[in-house]
Amino acid sequence: MTVELERIQSSPMAAELRIREHVLRIDAPLKEGGEDTGPEPHDLYDAALASCKALTVLWYARHKGWTIGALKTQVERDASDERAGTYRLAVRMQVEADLSEAQWAELQRAAENCPIHKLMTRVTTEISTEIARGVA
Rank of each mutant, 00 (worst) to 15 (best):
D36R: 09
V75M: 03
Y87R: 00
D98Q: 15
Y87C: 01
V95T: 11
G65W: 12
L49H: 04
R88Y: 00
G34E: 11
R88E: 00
R109V: 08
E112K: 08
L99G: 08
H63P: 00
W66D: 09
L89Y: 03
G34P: 13
A105L: 11
A97I: 12
R92A: 12
A102V: 05
G85I: 03
A102R: 11
G33L: 14
V57Y: 02
Q103K: 10
W66Y: 14
G33C: 13
R83M: 09
A61Q: 07
A110N: 07
T56C: 11
A47T: 12
R122G: 00
E106H: 13
L55T: 14
I68L: 15
K72D: 12
V91G: 03
S100L: 11
Q94H: 12
E101M: 08
G85N: 02
W66L: 15
T86H: 04
C52V: 04
L119M: 09
V91S: 10
H63Q: 15
A90R: 13
E96L: 06
D81M: 07
R77I: 08
M120R: 02
N113M: 04
D43Q: 12
G38N: 05
K53G: 02
R77V: 09
H63G: 09
Y45F: 14
E112I: 01
R122N: 06
H117C: 04
P39Q: 09
G33E: 13
G69V: 10
G34N: 12
D81E: 13
S80C: 01
C52K: 02
S51Q: 05
Q108L: 15
K72P: 03
W104K: 11
L119Q: 01
A54C: 07
L55D: 09
R83P: 03
G85Y: 00
H117E: 08
T73D: 12
A48F: 04
M93W: 01
H63R: 15
A79V: 02
Y45I: 09
Q103R: 10
R92I: 10
D78E: 05
L71R: 07
R62Q: 15
H63C: 11
V57M: 15
W59I: 11
L119A: 06
E101N: 14
L119W: 03
R109Y: 08
K53W: 07
R62L: 13
T121C: 01
Q94I: 10
T37F: 05
L44I: 07
L89H: 05
G65C: 11
G38M: 02
H42K: 08
L44V: 04
L55R: 05
M120S: 04
D43L: 09
W66T: 07
E40N: 15
Y45R: 01
G38W: 04
L49S: 02
Q74R: 14
A105E: 12
G85E: 00
M93P: 01
E32P: 03
V75C: 06
G65V: 11
K72C: 06
A50K: 01
D36G: 10
L119P: 00
L49D: 00
A97H: 06
T67N: 13
E82Q: 08
K53I: 15
R109F: 07
P41N: 10
